[in-house]
Nucleic acid binder design. Structure first.
Lengths: 140, 140
DNA sequence: GTGAGGATGCAAATCATTCTCAAGTGTCAG
DNA sequence: CTGACACTTGAGAATGATTTGCATCCTCAC
């Protein structure tokens, strides 16, 4: 079976090796935001011989091809997710590590406006929220 | 002379050593966002014997006391600035590395609202914009 | 002034990530 | 189908930022 990411790789003309197919599949099947070690562990379930160096190389390749996105939640590890047309951001539950994705057009517009007002053209940006679950409606 | 940060340390009851005073002074006098190596270099101009390990330890201490803030611009190094009551964010010029601080109440409000709508209480957040200077008014 | 707990300097250790290099593989032309 | 050639891979060493172990030194409350 050809994973969605593998399909994108082929369309971009990337040379497909068994290892890249495995990494592509792992990320296509993930619905979380695994770090490199987690990707490696999942990849080894498919190909026990795949090396961590190859995982790093494949992730970098996919990122440079804009097929996946690298996330940085400030804990010193890179996490990855399949790139999405729709721009979104992340809310990280600091108690459980759970990551909630959200989209907000107002924020997108504001960011652009802020950069513009500072006389800059916006190239990239990064927004993460860190929070804890509200127990009651009293919580702010 | 007692630097502003040293003053805050005293108020928080932190044990003050010569080295901590030096790091406090370096950060109080900085009006940029130095990384650890830069803090160390500046500190060594005051006390040539201060070790990088102590700089790391002092920075961590000050950060944990909420006296300074750690910034992460995604280049693998931590940068620091004096904590500011007024919450602000950073626009990084990806051509020059220059960092522009900005404040935007609408964004603050939006972040709070987004977290609230997701049933979370906002604890922390992080927003950085990366851009390049606009040459003409034509640029977006 | 003293002592106990904490801080420092140095070097070794960690951690994530990248690189080196020899050996293996995918792709494309023929 | 076959080979050439450039590109990949695995293993481990190297890197760069940061932390830690340990022996020694310093701060501060008493």
């Amino acid at each position: 079976m050809t994973s969605h990411i593998e399909q994108l790789c082929i369309e971009k003309g990337l040379k497909m090796t068994d290892q890249r197919r495995v990494v592509a599949r792992v990320l296509s099947e993930a619905n979380d935001h695994p770090d490199v070690e987690q990707v490696h562990i999942r990849a080894m379930r498919i190909d026990p011989n795949i090396s961590i160096a190859t995982v790093y190389r494949s992730l970098r390749l996919l990122e440079e091809a804009s097929i996946i996105e690298r996330l940085d939640f400030g804990d010193g590890r890179s996490r990855y997710e399949e790139a999405c047309e729709r721009h979104h951001h992340h809310l990280i539950d600091i108690q459980t590590g759970e990551v909630i994705e959200f989209i907000n057009d107002e924020i997108e517009e504001l960011k652009r406006k802020i950069a513009h007002d500072l006389n800059y053209r916006l190239i990239g940006h990064r927004l993460e929220l860190y929070g804890i679950k509200r127990r009651t409606d009293k919580d702010e």
